[in-house]
Design a protein around this nucleic acid. Sequence first.
RNA 1: GCGACUGUAGCUCAGAUGGUUAGAGUACCGGCCUGUCACGCCGGGGGUCGCGGGUUCGAGCCCCGUCAGUCGCGCCA
Length: 608
Amino acid sequence: MVSHLYRTHTCYDLTRDHAGQTVRLSGWVHRIRDHGGVLFVDLRDHYGITQVLADPDSAVFSDVENLRAEFVIRVDGEVRLRDPSLVNSKIATGEIEVFIRDMEVLSRAEELPLPVFGEPDYPEEIRLKYRFLDLRRTRLHQRIMLRSKVISWIRHRMEARGFTEFQTPILTASSPEGARDYLVPSRIHQGKFYALPQAPQQFKQLIMIAGFDRYFQISPCFRDEDPRADRAPGDFYQLDVEMSFANQEDVFSTIEPVLRGLFEEFGGGRTVTRNFPRIAYRDAMHEYGTDKPDLRNPLRMESVSEHFAGSGFRIFASLLERKGCEVRAIPAPGGGSRRFCDRMNSFAQRQGLPGMGYIFWRSRAGEIEGAGPLAKNIGPERTEAIRRQLNLGMGDAAFFLGGRPRAFEAVAGRARDEIAGQLDLIDHDRFSFCWITDFPMFEEDEESGALDFSHNPFSMPQGGLEALETGDPLDVLGYQYDIVCNGVELSSGAVRNHRLDVLYKAFEIVGHDRKFVDEHFSGMVNALRFGAPPHAGIAPGIERMVMLLANMENIREVTLFPLNQRAEDLMLGAPTRPTNEALRDLGLRIVGDVESRTRPVRGATGQR
RNA sequence: GCGACUGUAGCUCAGAUGGUUAGAGUACCGGCCUGUCACGCCGGGGGUCGCGGGUUCGAGCCCCGUCAGUCGCGCCA
């Protein structure tokens, strides 16, 4: 009658329509409720939960009594309709239950280090060491499924748009990206190392040069840099894209609908920016204090230097006499109380600034009046001019930061977010996208004055060779762009430099001659010599997108088996010290104080 | 590399100002309970208070060092 070895249905399948049928289910014991004469077991599998039960009428009643959490069991039984008063609306199978006639324990479980039932927070160390238990928990389980669905959706969408997925090598050569490489020693070439790709940057360009026209890959990337909450150590994934005979516009018009569609599909109904605004890097820094602005925050900074120049507020007035200095205002509608202003001022102090001046507007005898020490110093006319410029009114405030923009912009950006957060001006039900464009090609080292590439040196400068040969290199912009959503940088991309003469010139500006370029980037240089099409691309981070969709702030919450903050795998115990035989094969010897530096990774062997 | 916060039972946490035998919930073990769905009730076992040193008559608590975790800065697109 019951044919399959383990199950006829999943723990999500059974409904009132199955009442009276004999079924077979397998799964984990999620939770047991023992009432003496009747035993309830929540049986869980990947799909859902079904309540199974036994009483002394069941031949296996005593076996069911001995079950513990996370045992894996198979039960045979009959589906019974629940009395309407006993229906559990929280689970899909809540209208029925299964009366156990036979049961088999497929696998026992010891006392759990990490309960699967319930969703309280547990220390990451435990969660990572017992990741397989953590992954059984509903929410993480669902997020990993979300990630998988996102990737699948992207694949279909990209293929439908005429892109082809290719796999690029994992063992490769060091690339010109800026991060530290993971190195893999070569056995055949002792003393030489492969690098794991920081991104398939060179390969995707070579694929274009090879004539494949439109490439994408859900590609693993490896970077040996210290992590952050939104930056995994070790490996992460990108939607890597490259297009031939394409300019910046083509990339934008191709990727925008993909991202919009993705966030509409999986964003749980949150609204998605219809047309992604484009903000020049310079404007982003000016108005938002960052190149990854959160546009859910409506506040924009403005220059108010003219109102402070020559004013009675000496600190700003004398500041403004120096070259390159200005004063910017952050408007704070609704922040017009001394209490709030003082709180923000001390926020700025905690961020390492001497403070943040402010004006707030209140009513006095029916008239609007600017208050606070700054207003007193600059007088009512200038105060009123500022109010008009910022379009503020009664009950509003504005904060002021002065100096060289580079020195205060970052803090100003954080203050902008802090102010909007405190005043509840951020719409959390939105995905606000924007493109950041026109990044400068070069930057000047503040101390030495030396020029260097500010981003990827292989990007095409706007204006091409002519722009590089005439005028100030610091004024040259690149066809480089970022895509940002809710203050999270999803990706950067660029129109690539496919012209050798332009590439040589760009490197010359930062002090490297032809020989240097030929030696360091021989693969790319060679490829550019034999007919490279104009091409451009982008590479949004998969985890970053899933994080946003899942409303998480930590990348490990959307990763199956993440490394910890010290790039250790606590579950399987990586990295490990190789055997002496392996080292000999590779021609390697570990030098220095090995004992203190190759501390075994805790976890795998259970020591602590 | 640097900074902030954290480290007490298998797990989550509480332990003012230093003071007798370090507590609770949960999990685990035993008992009771036929309608629960975070079931309930009774009982029990379980601790090198991260580690080392110091101050003190006395340290989970104070001091120094060290290890580990998270978050941030540097770094990183």
